[in-house]
Every structure is written in structure tokens, then in C-alpha cells.
Amino acid sequence: MSENENITNNPIIVCEDVHKWFDDFHVLKGITTSFKKGEKAVICGPSGSGKSTFIRTINRLEEHQRGTIIVDGIELSNDLRNINLIRQEVGMVFQQFNLFPHLSNIKNITLGPMRVRKLSKRRAEEEALALLERMGIEDQAYKYPAEISGGQQQRVAIARALAMEPKIMLFDEPTSALDPEMISEVLDVMRELAHSGMTMLVVTHEMGFAREVADRVMFFDEGVVVEEASPADFFDNPQHDRTKLFISQTLQH
């Protein structure tokens, strides 16, 4: 366990019996959990277990069909105003980076602050450059996404999410599309972010990162949370057979 001095007792995300179907396929079968402010949760599980879908429901990239999700006191409903309010407080990093290819890296970052937070161009660029410096890639600011490496692109994407000054960061397999050499540079940035006290929900297969950074590890399978525990308990003393199998398989190689 680490870093839990940042955790407060107020939950910032509360999920109650969250269900989601893709047509007839029941992806999420009643997820009930909550995340405290400053908590870092790592979500793992086999593909198709609903872990990505779950974090995507939190900023309404996927609509949940039953149950309630409350983010920072705002309930996610079909009300567009609420959705936009929540999206401003929740940053998201994607597996495929999803940078905007027609904009330079710095414009990728300043777009949100200028168009949503209504910052002036100068202010937004100052903030963007500071963020890029924090990511260690300030020299890439005026290049285009296609001109930099995958690890750098993912760091630009993290900077883009942070530029909105979110209270929560969602990471959807942020290192899965990266070459092995570049994984560590992204994980370093995420580690630094974790130490700064950000609330983080990370879907990842990086078990080393989970063990080191997470306050809690959640294991998803077939749309339910099979097991959730502190990393120490989760890796060394798993309760559930399914979890044991998963851990043995992922740690094998």
C-alpha cells in the first residue's frame, strides 16, 4: 500500500448497481462500488470482462442502462448539461491515444482550455507548455502527433487531459498500444501523477504498476467485480479461483 495519505473519506465517484447491455449482450452486471478522492484504483481482468466499458460509463462515453453513477455530486443522466459538467472534471486517456492529427501537439492541448474553459490563447499556451515540460516533451510542442513516437503521443494525450484540470483521471489501457521500450516513459508520468494526489482509475495489464501505485486492485470478469483488494492482498493472497488463475497467467511471462 502506498500514497494513501492523500485519500480522503469522501467518495468522489459512487456507482450503484450499474448495468449495461450491448444489444443483448450483458456487459456490466450490476457494479456497485465507490472511489474516494485521491484514490488510485487499478482495474484488471480478461478482455471482454467489461473493465473498459465500466470506466467509459463514468464520463458517459458509454451510457449505462440501469443503476446510478454519481461523479463529484452530479448524477449522470441524459441531461446534456450534467454530462458536459462531468466530462470537464474527468480526464481520459485512451489506448490508441486519439490525438487530433490535424492539430499540432500544443493545439491538441490548448483546444479544451480555450473552447471549454474559455482561457485566453496566451494563458492556455503557457499552461500547455508547463504540462509538456512536466511530461518531459516540451521540445515536441509544435510538431504534429504523426511526427512523434507512440510514447510521446501518449504523454501529449495525458497532458491534453490534464489541461482541463480534472479531478479524476481515467486511463483505458494507456500502454497497451506501445512498444515495450516506450511503456516505462508513460508509466513514469502516471506514477508522478499518482504521487501528486490525483484520483485515478487505471485499466491496465501492467501488474508491476498496480502493485506499486494502486491503493486498490479490482478484478473484473464477465461483467462483475470478482474481487477487490489492496495490491498486497490481491497479488499475494487472492481469494477467488478465477483471480488466482488470472494472476498466475499474467505473472507467468
Binding site: L61, Q88, V90, F94, P101, H102, G112, R115, A157, A161
Partner: peptide, 26 residues
């Protein structure tokens, strides 16, 4: 790609702004 729309939405852009700044230019 759909990911472009999702990234724009995740940043908090509304539908018109997503279309205007992200989708239509591409």
C-alpha cells in the same frame, strides 16, 4: 475514427464544437 469524437467529448467539447473543431476539419 470514432476515437476522435470520444477524445473531443472526453475533453468536454459539446457536439457542435466537436464537429466544428475536430470532425469536420478532418
Amino acid at each position: 475514427p470514432q476515437g476522435q469524437v470520444e477524445a473531443a467529448q472526453a475533453v468536454g467539447l459539446t457536439y457542435p464544437k466537436t464537429m466544428l473543431f475536430i470532425v469536420l476539419p478532418q
